[in-house]
Every structure is written in C-alpha cells, then in structure tokens.
C-alpha cells in the first residue's frame, strides 16, 4: 500500500478521482446490460431510458476530465500520481465510448422491436454480451484494486469475444442468405454484435491503462487480434 500524501487535500482529490471512475464504470455496466436486455425483449421504453441515461455518463466524463486538468495545473503531479491522472483521463474516454456503444444498441431496439428474433441467434448474442460485461466488470475491479494480473487476464480474454463475434458474423450472413426478408433485422443485429466487440476493445484499452498505471510500463506482448470479419467473404460453398 502506498503512503499517504503530506497534503491531505491532494490525497482526497486522488481518492475522489478513483471513486468517480468507479461510479462511472458502474453506470456504464448497467447501461450496456439494460440496452441488451431491451434488445432481447424488444422493450422500447427501456431502450429510451438507456438513451437518456447515456447523458449521465457523458457528464461523468466531463467532470472527471475537468478534475484531472485542475489537478495537473494545481498539483503538478509526478510519478504514480501523474500516471493515475493521465490514466483517469484515458479510462474515462473509453468508458464514455462504451456508453455510446450501449446507447447505439438501444437505438436499434427502436427499429427492430416488432420483428421476431431468431432464438438461436439471440443465444449467441447473449453469450457475447455476458462475456463483454464480465470483462468490463473485471477490468473495473482490476483498476480499483490496482491488480495487474486481473488486467492481463482481461486483456488476453478479448480474443474470446472476437471469436464469438466471428461466428455470429457467419451465422447472420447465413440467415440473410436464407431469406432476404431477414436482411433488415440481421444487419441491425450485426451492428449490435459489432458494438459488443468494440466494447471488448475499449475494455482491453482500459486493461492496458491499468497495467501502465501500476507498473509504469506498457504490456509487452502483442495485442491478441481475433476479429477476422474484415477478411471474410460470402462463400456459397461454406
């Protein structure tokens, strides 16, 4: 455990930065979960709530950024403190993007709520969101605990989300080929899946920042990249 600052108000400011990130992270988790829930249930009211809630996340981002800038100006932070403040700015912006991606899923509910959603597809989507959410939860814990092992586990775990995304991509293409009337729904679902995959990427960014925060160095391994969909083609023989 690190020693406390001689200046207690500095210590308080750093602690408040941490607690604001924890609150913002919690809000982001809830928002993504609600957005996905609304998608599964075709719940328009709940989707609208999610869209409104995203504004709160944006407010957190502004507040944390402002506090970080003030602290840099007033405290001229060094070493660990400097890293904590820089990392706070970066994590906040990743969380804000995750919030946007959640909101985007909610917006799609408004377009596709009346259509019947193929159960098997939604099953794959569900496991993808479960994984994305548990990764997000773990990385926020890793940040709060300053736990690099946990952060590394999250960082490596992103590959699994990518793998599910690849298989969902194939599945959705298959549905679209089977019946062109599925194309509208499946395109929206494909974007939802892509959003979840992007949430995984932002979570990975946060994991990298936790590593930097604690150790002052970047993760030396090459980042696992599992999203192959950019190279996938429709192949009738598949």
């Amino acid at each position: 455990m690190t020693t406390e600052h001689i200046v207690t108000s500095y210590e308080d400011e750093l602690a408040s930065l941490d607690s604001k990130i924890a609150q913002m992270g919690g809000l982001t988790e809830t928002l993504v979960a609600q957005a996905f829930d609304a998608l599964c249930k075709g719940d328009v009211a709940s989707a609208n709530n999610v869209i409104l809630d995203d504004a709160k996340i944006d407010e957190y981002e502004l507040e944390i950024e402002e506090q970080a800038v003030t602290m840099i100006a007033r405290r001229q932070p060094m070493a660990l403190d400097l890293r904590q403040i820089m990392v706070a700015i970066k994590i906040t912006s990743d969380l804000e993007r995750i919030g946007d991606l959640g909101k985007n899923i909610a917006k799609r509910v408004l377009s596709i709520h009346s259509e019947i959603q193929p159960i098997q597809l939604m099953h794959g989507m569900k496991s993808m969101q479960d994984l994305a959410l548990s990764q997000l939860k773990d990385v926020l814990d890793a940040y709060a605990e300053r736990n690099t092992e946990k952060a590394l586990a999250v960082w490596r775990g992103d590959e699994e989300i990518d793998a599910i995304y690849n298989s969902l991509f194939r599945e959705l293409l298959t549905y679209m080929m089977e019946d062109p009337r599925n194309i509208g729904l499946c395109t929206h679902l494909l974007f939802c899946a892509k959003n979840l995959e992007r949430i995984g990427d932002h979570t990975t960014n946060i994991a990298e920042n936790v590593h930097y925060l604690v150790l002052g160095t970047n993760i030396s391994e090459a980042r696992p990249k599992g999203d192959n969909t950019s190279r996938m083609l429709i192949n009738q023989d598949d």
Binding site: T2, T3, E4, H5, I6, V7, Y10, P77, M78, A79, L80, D81, L82, R83, L215, G216, T217
Partner: peptide, 19 residues
C-alpha cells in the same frame, strides 16, 4: 525518475508522500 521511479522512497519523495 519522474514518471516511473523504481524505488518506493523516490516515489514517496517526488510525489509529496514522504512519511
């Protein structure tokens, strides 16, 4: 030294934590 000191004493001093 000022972004990632290796010694805890150094870090405590430059960040104003000296106990």
């Amino acid at each position: 030294i000022f972004t990632n000191p290796q010694n805890e004493k150094t870090q405590d001093y430059i960040t104003g934590r000296f106990g």
